[in-house]
């Protein structure tokens, strides 16, 4: 069968959602941010809630998220996205509000805003991209950098005694009563992508039902910061990040998952 006979509109099974703009993504080749953006927009698209969705972009690599996500968005100051989202949601309780934040933004400078928005049970969705490094500023140590991991500010590897421990903020947040749904996923394989998308769907459902805050961590790669090829970085992530940041549900329907 000729390829031309296959490539016809009626045979289309997958194309980029229209809720992603045509602006070329500013992310490095192979970076999981693009996939995470697209999944989020696919969910908004498929739920038919674009007219009622307001997103909040962070400071970090995804500071320009609003260049790519074709929905109403606000750019927050570094770490303050959960407070900005709180302000939006409190005034518009029937709108869907999400934040999209990296590990430096959410788990270092914005820890207070993150924990308090979660603890108040703000009825929002937080998408947390954890790649264990500050990508935007050129690969410095993040609160989530693994012990021994090399970054430009831990050039001989993270020494826990001197630099402190990596922060599992997702597990911490799961303890808070205002948080309804907490889960950790990845976007580097087709299977991981499908699971993440399901989780994002669930998070927006939780928001629709006004049950409290949903928190989705996506463990992702930073091949530039980690100084690896994209595919190699995904393998390194499986071997090193996943044992520490274990994938799976942490809290469902307000109940901690016992493993």
């Amino acid at each position: 069968m000729d390829i031309k006979e296959i490539i016809k509109p009626e045979n289309l099974v997958y194309k980029k959602t229209g809720l992603m703009t045509d602006n070329p993504l500013s992310y490095c080749p192979g970076c999981g941010h693009g996939t995470a953006h697209r999944l989020l927009m696919e969910v908004v698209d498929e739920l038919g809630i674009v007219e009622d969705t307001i997103g909040v972009a962070p400071v970090g690599c995804s500071v320009l998220a609003y260049d790519f996500m074709n929905v109403d968005m606000q750019g927050a100051a570094h770490g303050r996205a959960p407070a900005v989202a709180t302000g939006i949601k409190r005034c518009w309780p029937d709108k869907y509000v999400f934040t999209y934040q990296g590990d430096g933004d959410l788990a270092a400078i914005g820890t207070a805003e993150t924990i308090h928005a979660c603890n108040r049970g703000e009825n929002i969705t937080i998408i947390f991209i954890n790649n264990g490094i500050y990508g935007m500023t050129g690969g410095q140590m993040a609160p989530t950098t693994l012990p021994g991991m090399r970054t430009t500010t831990s050039p001989y590897g993270r020494e826990v005694e001197m630099m402190g421990n990596p922060l599992k903020i997702t597990e911490l947040i799961a303890q808070l009563p205002g948080v309804h749904y907490v889960t950790r996923h990845a976007v580097h394989t087709p299977r991981a992508v499908r699971k993440t998308k399901k989780a994002i769907f669930k998070a927006f459902e939780v928001q629709k039902e006004k049950k409290g805050l949903s928190f989705i961590e996506i463990v992702s790669n930073c091949n530039s910061g980690w100084k690896m090829e994209p595919v190699a970085s995904n393998i390194w992530m499986e071997d090193n990040m996943f044992p520490f940041y274990e994938l799976g549900d942490i809290k469902i329907d307000g109940q901690l998952v016992t493993k």
Partner: peptide, 10 residues
């Protein structure tokens, strides 16, 4: 899995 959403499938 394409981070840049450049692949369309039929």
């Amino acid at each position: 899995v394409c981070p840049d959403g450049v692949i369309t499938v039929y």
